[in-house]
Design a protein around this nucleic acid. Structure first.
Lengths: 337, 337
DNA sequence: CTTGGCACTCAGGAAGCGTGAGTGCCAGGG
DNA sequence: CCCTGGCACTCACGCTTCCTGAGTGCCAAG
């Protein structure tokens, strides 16, 4: 269907268009790449490519621009991920290694991705559902008020206030704390939720009301998947003069956690690098953007995803290289801590 | 210098320009406001106002536009804060009351401000230096690894990993925890830092190396003022067609925590509502924007600041009303928890 | 299948024009 | 002294027109 040269032409068009942001014509193509044929030949090829929907012209008598379909073919078959320079790699590792605490890791990751790709970076906090309870702490703030803190192995700390039905003493709290830690330590959160549910019975009747309150908060806290936060940064890169239109939509989409979740969720699952181009995107406001995403995690398990969002006219090989490298290093950092 | 009517004219110009985003001329002024004089008279007044630097014309034969100085006068002497509708108030209270945990309060505050004002909202986390230690928790993750969690009365939870020089047992950790809580509970963070510094002596020599490591982390953690995070939202409102230029700078400034800190810091101190207009702004990229900020806190103490950022052409009375109301309610919520 | 030649298209910039909102100034009236 | 109507002037903006050049599709010959 598409012979070797036509593919080469498509690749060249994508590359040129990405770097110049201007429709590319047959003449400039033969000039910049050394296809040793004449412009006329290229024109014929381009006609075919257009007929098949890989490229299009913004208006008659302008050069060609890749379509979403064209980018798709480019990404799938015509390009390879461009690995980062070793200087970049070292910089990444160094920068991430300085992080303390999960929040900081996530923040640094966002910055890193945004700077590296000069685009918008999106990072999802490691999923709670797969992580393991490290410790549960109860702090008595007032006779009828407790602070519940759940610490997981990914370094995530969840906190929540509880108003108790009855007054309680430090002793009661200590008992409850001991019970909780004995039962939950080392359990997956998914398991932990079930265990907590069945725990009320082991509490002496006197403290049951209070215990129940605490338990329900813990359960709510742990099972709430939507508590999976998403952080983004690098929005200044959106102001790049190209796609100033639709900008509002993009910003809006970014601020809607729910929408972002959906997009990341749709990105083909798990650890593999995935690219979503233009209209492939499920969200209306992101139809003019592409999303390069990857899962990340420690030790084989995918904890969450991170991604880079940019115009469809994007340096795919470079972005893919950056995303994949950062994902790997973040995984390593999380493993250590 | 400026008689009553000239001031009225300035006020009218600001109001009209804010609502229409177009230079306002003498005729439309007399039409829309019932100044009972002729356009010619207004023109004379405008000439004076212009000479004094309160207004300016974008080009000859266009209407007038307020200058930063004009807005300043407007804010200081010609306008009053516009209180929110009681429906809005209830909505705010309701929305904030649902929050659990500090993170959630801050996030909700940002959304609230952004929606209410249709502009960019900026909220600073409550300052650590003024808050009080509620509890310190040590969790032994591995023989040579501890997680240190500091909980403050404002609900803030700070966490940090420590690598210990020597192995340790659960008992050691328990002792250390008891010591820390006994010494620090209820202390201001500023005091706490000093206390920790003098604490090494009270540890038996065997555990001193480990204790020192933990202490130093705690001190670093508590005294690092720069750890005061700032969160923002509502950037989609920046896409409002007016000041699309300079947008890049604004976004960039927003993402630089340091810059934001500086701006908020410069905003005249403490709890009072403060307005910073255009070029009064210390940061280059924000020279075309105004910042309406207010301190907030619980019980008389100012813990941090929150603000709204928008074009200089902004509805000052409305924005000021929203900022001040939100600041108050956030304070109340923090007090309760 | 490739190539040079040729006629055709059309976006985008430059130039010209008209219009109307807005101005500054002035002389007369309260 | 301040206000007012009148008047001439200015100039951004929107409109059309024109031109140019990059780029195209098609064709006939190699």
């Amino acid at each position: 269907m598409l012979d070797e040269r036509k593919l080469a032409v498509l690749r060249a068009i994508v590359e040129d268009y990405v770097s110049t942001n201007e429709p590319v014509g047959s003449k400039s193509l033969v000039d910049r790449h050394n296809l040793d044929v004449s412009p006329a030949t290229i024109r014929n090829d381009m006609a075919v490519l257009e007929e098949q929907g890989y490229i299009t012209q913004p208006h008659t008598s302008a050069g060609r621009v890749p379509t979403d379909k064209g980018y798709r073919l480019f990404v799938d078959r015509l390009s390879h991920m461009k690995p980062l320079s070793s200087a970049d790699r070292r910089a990444i590792q160094g920068y991430l290694a300085q992080a303390y605490g999960l929040d900081d890791v996530v923040m640094r990751t966002v910055r890193l991705l945004a700077q590296l790709t000069r685009q918008v970076a999106v990072v999802q906090y490691p999923s709670l559902t797969r992580s393991v309870v490290r410790h549960i702490e109860l702090v008595r703030l007032a006779p009828e008020k407790l602070l519940v803190v759940v610490i997981t192995d990914t370094g995530r700390v969840e906190q929540r206030m509880v108003d108790l039905p009855d007054r309680c003493e430090d002793d009661d709290v200590a008992h409850l704390r001991a019970l909780l830690n004995a039962s939950l330590d080392g359990r997956r959160l998914t398991e932990a939720v079930k265990i907590v549910a069945s725990l009320t019975e082991s509490v002496p009747p006197a403290g049951r009301a209070n215990a129940a309150a605490v338990f329900s908060v813990i359960m709510a806290n742990l099972s709430e998947r939507n508590e999976e936060r998403i952080v983004f940064g690098g929005t200044a890169n959106l102001a790049a003069p190209d796609f100033s239109q639709g900008l509002r939509d993009v910003l809006q989409a970014l601020e809607e956690q729910v929408v972002l979740m959906r997009v990341l969720g749709d990105a083909t699952d798990e650890s593999l690098l995935s690219v979503m181009i233009g209209r492939e995107n499920p969200v209306e406001g992101l139809r003019t953007t592409s999303l390069v995403s990857s899962g990340y995690g420690s030790g084989g398990e995918t904890l969450a995803k991170l991604a880079v969002l940019g115009p469809t006219r994007m340096d795919y090989p470079g972005t893919m290289g950056a995303v994949s490298a950062v994902a790997r290093y973040v995984g390593e950092i999380l493993m250590e801590s």
